[in-house]
Amino acid sequence: MPDNAVCFPEADALLEIAGLSVSLGRNSILENISFKVARGSIHALIGPNGAGKTTLIRSILGQMPHRGTIMFRFTGNGRIGYVPQFLDFDHSIPLTVSDFIKLLLQDYPLFLAGRKRNMEKVEEIISVTECLHLKDRMMGGLSGGEFRRVLLAQALFPIPELLLLDEPASNMDEVSTSQFEQLLKKLQKRHGLSILMVGHDIRRILALADHVTAVNRRVVFDGKPDILQNPARLAEIFGLGFPDLFASCKAEG
């Protein structure tokens, strides 16, 4: 673990990753990753493209063979909610928001069930992320922000102990991203969620996260996000690329 890591009591860590390594054939994707996610916190996982962030998320979900340990200290239902970056489907398919939630909700074949079957439950689920008005809209016709809210709604059914978000800001404009972040914070407070989110926009991380782990195959930084406000320190940690990103956000700001 890097020397600048912020430590907290072991009991407060909902997720503890120690010495995690992932290889695909001869290629090493992740090497000796170690960090903790505090209970009830928003923890950001950042890094450049190809740094292994999504592989790390898949390892946490138990979908990737790895070495090392991933320890959960769940005290409730032990559920992990997952918000994917995208859904791979033809956008002209008549898949409504209600249909999508029903596919998750019921074993009974969707085409045999009446339209109103489970509708109350669907409404309850999508109300959590304030998208009840979208229930009859086509998934392929949603804006980036609306789409992300629906994906968040499915992940929150039932309310998980750990919520994983893969690049939640992708395909969203500035206003939608800001609204989504406010919603995420509100839900985190209301339900006491522990959130681990993948991102690469340092400006957004600064506004949202309680803790940041930066990876580029290895852990290159693990600590409070405010250190990222210092461009010199940022350049020292990340090398080229990230300072440019920071400079651009400063210019905009």
Binding site: Y82, P84, F86, L87, D88, L103
Partner: peptide, 13 residues
């Protein structure tokens, strides 16, 4: 049906 449809959208999900 439900499971086949859902699994075609995103394997990780």
């Amino acid at each position: 049906y439900n499971r086949v449809m859902l699994s075609s959208f995103n394997p990780v999900l």
